[in-house]
Design a binder for these strands. Structure first.
Length: 183
DNA sequence: CGGTTTTGACCGGCGC
DNA sequence: GCGCCGGTCAAAACCG
């Protein structure tokens, strides 16, 4: 599996979200059921201070691998039902982004398959799935009640394909970053 | 006309 | 066992 830079939300909706990311506090963690203990409501910023490092993206990747929950994921069977052996919890990681828009276009194509209201949160949570064939990556987007300027995006799984949208995504920007960053 | 969104139903896990 | 809660399905509506 290649490293997939789905970590980076950016909006192609014409809104200026880019500066936000650079300045704001996005939080990355590979969350699991276990890890979600604090829950978004109370643990705002209760995460590890991983963002203190200068490299914006590498932190996320590192953090992710640290948790070791990362294994390629898929090996999904598209059988109608997943049998009980599907206990393995997939690696998930979330980050917050300060943005006015809910739709954070990261360059992949997503199809919305659900929306639910969650407790302690007056905003609904939206569920998306990657439309690429064989790619079972899911993500959910949720806005915080506490601060409605914060959008929490949670990714689950890894993409087994390249970003589809060549323009206006963060991939090449990331590459640039990695190229130009001495570290 | 095909892909996506919407939205209520359905289902499984968990706590009481 | 039951009800709450979070996640998914699926049919119809919607939109280019």
């Amino acid at each position: 599996m290649e490293n997939c830079q789905m970590f980076f939300p950016c909006s192609s909706t014409g809104k200026s979200v880019y500066p936000v990311m650079t300045t704001t506090d996005y939080i990355a963690n590979s969350s699991d059921h276990v890890f979600s203990h604090g829950d978004q409501s109370s643990s705002s910023g209760g995460f590890l201070g991983l963002k203190q490092n200068s490299g914006p993206n590498t932190d996320i990747v590192k953090n992710d691998s640290i948790n070791g929950a990362f294994h390629g994921s898929e090996s999904e069977e598209k059988s109608s039902k997943m049998k009980g052996e599907k206990k393995i919890k997939k690696p998930r990681f979330a980050f917050q982004t300060r943005s006015q828009v809910d739709i954070l276009d990261d360059g992949y194509r997503w199809r919305k398959y659900g929306q639910k209201a969650v407790k302690d949160n007056k905003f609904p949570r939206s569920y998306y799935r990657c439309t690429h064939e064989g790619c079972n990556v899911k993500k959910q987007v949720q806005r915080l009640t506490k601060d409605e300027g914060i959008v929490v995006t949670t990714y689950e799984g890894m993409h087994n394909h390249r970003i589809e949208k060549p323009t206006d995504n963060f991939e090449h920007i990331l590459n640039q970053l990695q190229i130009y960053t001495p570290f």
